[in-house]
Design a protein around this nucleic acid. Sequence first.
RNA 1: CGGGGAGUAGCGCAGUCCGGUAGCGCAUUCGCUUUGGGAGCGAAGGGUCGCAGGUUCAAAUCCUGUCUCCCCGACCA
Length: 488
Amino acid sequence: MAKKITGKEEDFSQWYQDVIREAKLADHSPVRGCMVIRPNGYALWENMKASLDKMFKDTGHENAYFPLFIPKSFLSKEAQHVEGFAKECAVVTHSRLKSVDNGVEVDPESRLDEELIVRPTSETIIWDSYRNWIQSYRDLPILINQWANVVRWEMRTRLFLRTMEFLWQEGHTAHATEEEAVDETKKMLEVYSTFAKEFMAMPVIKGVKTASERFAGAVDTYCIETLLQDNKALQAGTSHFLGQNFAKAFDVKFQSSEGEHEYVWATSWGVSTRLIGGLIMTHSDDQGLVLPPKLAPNQVVIVPIWKNDEQKSVVLEYGDQIIAELKDLDIRVKLDDRENMSPGWKFNEHEAAGTPLRITIGPRDLENNNVELARRDTRDKNIVNREGIAEKAAGLLETIQKELFQSAQERISDNTHSVDSYDDFKEIIENEGGFVYAHWDGTSETEEKIKDETKATIRCIPLEDGESGKCMVTGKPSKQKVLFARAY
RNA sequence: CGGGGAGUAGCGCAGUCCGGUAGCGCAUUCGCUUUGGGAGCGAAGGGUCGCAGGUUCAAAUCCUGUCUCCCCGACCA
């Protein structure tokens, strides 16, 4: 496996792919830019889904499902929206194939009257439905989430971080008032931030995007940004306040309690399998994947060791007892009793897969009523008494979850800078990378100039208030420092 | 879409310059010995050399076209 510590970008990229391959998370697919998500990767996604889904339900949302195909005319109803997505759409033009000498070809006679777009996001098809669902203020709010796949024809892809097809959830809500929609936007940003920190152990910075980075069709785009181990930033989730843009484009009005006809206010918000890429790049090391216990498909793996059949049966029985105790505390545990595979092999394999905790049991441990406990994150190993093993494991899992966040937080703090001069800014971006706070005059021109000259973009305008000052480039007044970084 | 690299067994690769029987390591199957950090020995199976043309007595190798992947750019809710 490639080492990440060399710091060269090629090596980092190689390391990232090696982690994914050895943890058996995903493979490249035969289709350009797409990926095959393997069971290990999908189990991780399912855990993330389950946790997020609960948070959505707890905040009053329901799941629904809308079509994969969007009529071309729908996409063009909102001007900014179509402009933003037009360059990256998969388009369905025909409905069938026909046999020819060397296989099949597209039947030219099956050309569709109106092309269908494979959804890059579902605002348009959903707002077309909402028009029919909403008449009165009594129909509002509509708080819906959809788990789905979307397709964006990206020029350059990277497993999990940017793929042509990806899995995600997209929330689409409709409200009677602007205030309520803005509150919803901020509430869901908070949900994402909480999920990132508490479940993924991934520190994030909340902020709002500048006009140039805003979602196509949004009034405001809020986001969470994190910093990965190669010191590049990653947009981990977004929550958009859409104003009345989509309501006007799709003519969605409601009658208020005063009897007035008004356009509906909207939000949309989403996170995707990109989060898995962020998770990998936040915690993993040269041994492979490191998973936070709250999301790990297996939180504990038990590796039994035996020399003969007699030992095997007692060791496995010992293992079964421990499993029962762990399961009583709702710990996700697996006994790896595969034959003809050495314990050493299993140790390495489970480390590459990121299982947070390993319990090793062999004849030696049975004799002394012990087990060996090994942490994935620190790779510490300890012999502990078997009594109360489930409580010890549960305690360690909590510790691991907490310490993963702390060490990620420390790494990000160490790589976050604050500068006042453009020279310092360029120096840090070029040589160190990481997050850089700096004053900016609020204009797209300056933002563009900085991007051209340094490849750094404004990741967000942080929600926390900062002190005013002068733009590092133009010297014009700035309300607060904004967050810059080179990003994925 | 531009520049660079690559595509040969399930995975990782050598062979290509200089055309001449399709190779190596890991994995797989069988046998025996093993099992506390990626086990050892012996045997066996597995390939339209990305695809399509061309040159040649003969092509993984040379030529042309094409597809895909990786890296660097450009692009990127």
